[in-house]
């Protein structure tokens, strides 16, 4: 029984990270209706931003403090938000009214470009690196359970970010505009919404969440490399589809489900080898039986 709870905690921590990345996919899909393949790479850049900011922050703040860790997190989020907006401006904006497939292929191109540039010896290099400890590493033993402080941080940070996101999307003016663009782009333009600004903001917001996910992931798994975003990004996308793409609570829910299922499957001897395939099997099942996802509304196609 303790093992079940232990796996549940591990799964929740992994699922929270998937959820953070999935939110970016879902938001971009909401306003632009395409899959931003490069999102997983922004997640990777977030982890690397944390890697480079940690020593800088340690100069004037004690190493491994909660405050210092939070500062690194915020800095990485800001940098990645800017990178996300830059990607949108350079690669996707020129293609705004082109066929969806063209944009999709461009997104794959952007993703490859980031991956290979970062693998180049002059940038990060292909070898994995050890991520510095941002917070004091402690483990708590409750009953038979082992809970690492980083796991608690993952859950707490995710919760804070989700509440902040909900506030931005539901209560602020820019959030209202985002929902308007997602609901009906043309009508939003007629109401005086500046589409370019909103799309740019959406990319920034999604990329910041991905960066947070990247740092939280790096804190838990302690090793980072330029290709870490490929598999994780794909799985987070699966999470977004499972929850219903375009639906914010759905993305978080899908992330949690995926993280928990994957962790449990990893603990079952016969299945552990298939761990990487499970996310895609879930994706296919969901698309077959409930194409609009768990929380998504089915769309009627009009001609």
């Amino acid at each position: 029984m303790t093992e079940v709870f232990q796996q549940l905690i591990n799964g929740l921590a992994l699922g929270a990270i998937y959820g953070l990345i999935a939110l970016g996919y879902t938001m971009v899909y909401g306003v632009l209706r395409f899959i931003n393949f490069a999102h997983g790479d922004v997640f990777m850049l977030g982890a690397f931003a944390g890697y480079y900011f940690a020593p800088l922050v340690n100069r004037f703040l004690p190493a491994q403090s909660y405050f210092g860790g939070a500062l690194v997190l915020v800095l990485a989020m800001v940098v990645c938000a800017l990178i996300g907006m830059l990607i949108e401006f350079l690669a996707y904006r020129p293609l705004r009214n082109r066929p969806k497939l063209t944009v999709l292929i461009t997104a794959i191109g952007v993703s490859l470009f980031i991956e290979y540039t970062c693998q180049h010896a002059a940038v990060f290099g292909a070898a994995p690196r050890k991520f510095p400890d941002l917070i004091p590493a402690t483990t708590w033993h409750i009953g038979g359970l082992v809970i690492a402080s980083s796991q608690v941080i993952v859950l707490v940070t995710t919760l804070i970010l989700l509440i902040a996101l909900r506030f931005i999307v539901q209560k602020t003016k820019v959030g209202t505009a985002m929902r308007a663009v997602s609901f009906n782009e043309q009508a939003a333009v007629l109401m005086g919404v500046n589409i370019n600004r909103i799309i740019s903001f959406t990319f920034g917001l999604g990329s910041a969440l991905a960066a947070a996910g990247g740092i939280l992931y790096a804190m838990n798994y302690s090793s980072i490399e330029p290709l870490m975003g490929v598999q994780t990004g794909l799985k987070a996308f699966v999470a977004a589809v499972v929850g219903g793409i375009g639906n914010l609570p759905g993305a978080a829910l899908g992330g949690l489900i995926l993280g928990i299922v994957e962790t449990f499957a990893g603990g079952i001897p016969g299945l552990s080898n298939y761990r990487d395939g499970i996310a895609f099997a879930i994706l296919i099942l969901i698309l077959l039986f409930r194409p609009s996802g768990l929380l998504g509304k089915p769309q009627v196609e009009k001609v």
Binding site: V238, D276, F280, L288, P291
Partner: peptide, 27 residues
């Protein structure tokens, strides 16, 4: 089963199938 889907959904599902096939041979 998948060709009811379109565009980017189809892309991601075929990608998923490709990965599943690879994982199958890998294990």
């Amino acid at each position: 089963p998948t060709l009811r889907l379109r565009g980017d959904y189809l892309a991601i599902v075929t990608l998923g199938f490709g990965e599943i096939i690879r994982v199958f041979f890998q294990t």
